[in-house]
Deep mutational scan, measured.
Amino acid sequence: MQGVVKVNSALNMRSGPGSNYGVIGTLRNNDKVEIIKEVDGAYEIRFNGKVGYASKSYITIVN
């Protein structure tokens, strides 16, 4: 499943599905991501070869 990031500035990509996990990357508006699955209000995603988590509130599914 594919998604597009929709933010005003940037969205943190984290090592786990919550803000208490470390930041492993930054997503920008209109970045395209692969959605692997939904976990606790976040999506597990793949972006630029990395797998991490981002809030589903800022990712629009575009299948």
Rank of each mutant, 00 (worst) to 15 (best):
D40R: 09
R14I: 06
N30T: 04
K6R: 13
T26C: 13
V4G: 01
R28E: 09
G52L: 03
K6W: 04
S9K: 14
G41P: 02
V62P: 07
D40G: 12
N12P: 15
R46A: 09
M13D: 02
Y21I: 04
R46C: 13
I59W: 00
V4D: 02
Y43E: 00
S19C: 15
N8G: 12
S19W: 12
G3S: 02
N12Q: 14
K37P: 00
A54P: 02
G49E: 07
G22C: 13
I36H: 03
G18D: 10
A42W: 15
V33N: 00
E34Q: 10
A54F: 03
I59A: 00
G22W: 09
L11S: 04
Y58I: 06
V62G: 07
V23Y: 05
V39H: 09
G25R: 04
D40W: 08
S9T: 13
V33A: 01
G16I: 04
N12V: 15
V51T: 12
S15A: 11
V62S: 09
L27T: 01
T60V: 15
T60W: 13
V7H: 11
I24T: 06
I61Y: 04
G49Y: 03
S55F: 06
R28M: 12
Q2I: 15
I45N: 00
G25K: 04
V4T: 07
L11W: 00
D31I: 03
V51E: 07
N20G: 13
R28D: 06
K56Y: 03
N8M: 10
G41N: 11
G41E: 10
A42H: 15
K56D: 04
S9A: 11
V5Q: 01
E38D: 06
K56V: 10
K32Q: 12
M13E: 02
P17T: 06
S55V: 09
Y43S: 00
D31L: 04
V39S: 05
E38Q: 07
I59F: 05
M13R: 02
I24M: 06
I35S: 00
M1V: 13
A42V: 14
K56A: 10
I59V: 07
Y53T: 02
V62H: 07
K56F: 03
V62D: 09
G22R: 13
K37W: 06
Y53R: 02
Y53M: 02
I45R: 00
E34A: 08
V33H: 00
V62E: 10
V39R: 05
I61T: 06
N63F: 09
Y53F: 12
Y58C: 14
I36D: 01
M13K: 01
K56H: 04
F47E: 01
A10C: 15
G16E: 05
R14A: 05
V5S: 01
K6A: 08
N48L: 09
G52A: 05
G18T: 10
V62K: 05
T60I: 14
K50C: 08
R46E: 08
L11N: 03
G16S: 09
I36M: 10
D31M: 05
T60Q: 14
F47W: 11
S15F: 05
M13T: 02
K6T: 12
S55A: 11
N48P: 00
G16Q: 06
K6F: 06
Q2T: 13
N29Y: 09
G52I: 03
P17C: 07
G49P: 01
M13V: 15
E38N: 03
G16P: 02
Y21A: 15
K56I: 10
Y21E: 11
N20A: 10
S19V: 12
V51S: 08
K37S: 14
A54C: 12
I24F: 01
G41K: 06
K56T: 09
L27R: 01
A54R: 00
N12I: 14
I45F: 04
R28I: 10
S9P: 06
G18I: 02
G49Q: 05
K32E: 10
Y53V: 03
